[in-house]
Amino acid sequence: MFLINAWYNKAGWLIVLRPLSLLFSWLASRRRQKQQAALRQASPQHTAVPVIVVGNIAVGGTGKTPLVLALSRALHDRGITAGVLSRGYGGRAPQYPFVVNADSQVLHTGDEARLLRRHSAGPMVVDPERSRGLQALIETGRCDVVISDDGLQHYRLRRDIEIVVVDGTRGLGNGWCLPAGPLREPPARLAQVDYVVINGANRAFSEDTLSAGDTSVTTMRLIPAYWVNVKTGERADVQALPVPDAIRHDMHALAGIGNPQRFFDTLDELGLAVTCHPYADHHAYNAVELAFARDKVLLMTEKDAVKCESFAGDHWWSLIVSAELAQGFTEAFCDQVTHILARRQHDAQQQQ
């Protein structure tokens, strides 16, 4: 957390790491160029179904998973079935590629994949080797397109559309690559993708600072939808959290996501006074460390909740959110996917 705070607060001492950042940036660009050259020489030149990559250039969470779900639903409304591909971070499956079903254990899938499976209609596969996982998804014969949750830097994965999500509060930090800054690739990478989506309309920076060039820049907002009791599955209105008066004065909240403060700020906006407990992204909780809240109110994200269901207390609730996208972006994205599908179909007919 110390280094993350330094990146986003633009601490002056990070300048000593700047030479390493320049080396990291050069190596990242070099690796990408080599992988792209290898793909251009390989055959065929495109995958059997279009591939959409939703990723980021900064370490930590930016809101990719809610966007993947929103895009999947938008395509579904157009009659297009999207399969979802995930690395399965934090999980260890019996084998890879691993097809994620409704009853798959979070131990095997990881937290984000478990959450995605819960809300996705199409097939889903996790595999650290994304190209192999993509092939497994295609072989199911049940998807028209594939959306990869993260994987922007997995250059061996062919893709037709690239979407980068940027945290509207933190932006790109000090704009430097690792280790002096939070970036996996230099800011200029944004000018090479199809869309940049800023998560949070009340952003603390201008679009000019993104170096996105002619790339389409749009926004999204995470909207609190409803509460779900982690133990029972009971639903409650987002403005009517059913908390007994006897314990309302001592409520707690945890978040093991890329930017825990985003969740805590949301609770504050909902008028909930809580003691905050930030954890590292993908933290694996256990009953012992959360015993302090056994008989108390404990609020968490859905990503956290999938790892706490087996030992949850009676008053543990997860907040379900949905991504609200700009109408113009949703239409442009779906139109682009429809066009790619039509072109693929035409090419296939020409080859027959």
Rank of each mutant, 00 (worst) to 15 (best):
A191M: 03
V166H: 04
P244E: 10
T215D: 02
H249M: 10
Y226V: 04
Y155M: 03
G213K: 09
G233L: 12
L190S: 04
H154F: 10
G151K: 00
V164S: 00
A225R: 15
E207I: 07
M220K: 07
D250M: 10
P182F: 10
R184G: 00
E207Y: 00
D237E: 15
N229H: 11
P242T: 09
D167H: 12
V243T: 14
D245N: 07
I198K: 04
E162L: 02
V196N: 04
T169Y: 04
E207M: 00
L178Y: 12
V196A: 03
C177M: 10
P182Y: 11
E162I: 03
A180P: 05
D150M: 01
Q153H: 14
R248W: 11
L172H: 01
Q192L: 07
P179D: 08
H154Y: 13
P186S: 14
D167W: 13
R184D: 02
I223A: 00
G175S: 10
V228G: 00
V193N: 01
W227P: 10
T215G: 04
A204F: 02
H154D: 12
I161N: 00
D208L: 07
D149M: 04
L222I: 06
G168P: 12
A240P: 02
V196I: 09
G151T: 01
H249F: 12
D208M: 09
L152T: 09
G173W: 09
A201D: 09
L152K: 07
D237L: 11
V217K: 08
S216V: 13
D214F: 08
P244K: 07
P244G: 11
G171T: 06
L183N: 08
A191L: 02
Y155K: 00
R184W: 02
L157Y: 08
Y195D: 03
N199M: 04
R235P: 07
V217P: 11
A188I: 09
R189C: 05
L172E: 02
V230I: 13
S206D: 14
A191C: 03
T215C: 12
L152V: 05
R235N: 13
P244I: 07
W176L: 15
T209M: 15
D194T: 08
H249N: 15
S211T: 09
V243F: 14
T232W: 06
N202G: 02
L210K: 09
N199I: 03
D214S: 15
D150R: 04
P242N: 09
V230R: 03
D250G: 02
L241V: 05
T169E: 15
C177L: 05
T215E: 06
L222T: 07
A240N: 15
L190K: 10
N202Q: 15
L178D: 09
R156W: 00
D167M: 09
A180G: 06
T215R: 01
G233K: 13
A191K: 03
T218G: 05
T169L: 13
T218M: 09
T232L: 03
T169G: 08
L172T: 06
L152M: 11
V164R: 01
G175D: 13
V230Y: 03
R248G: 06
N174G: 11
W176C: 14
L152A: 04
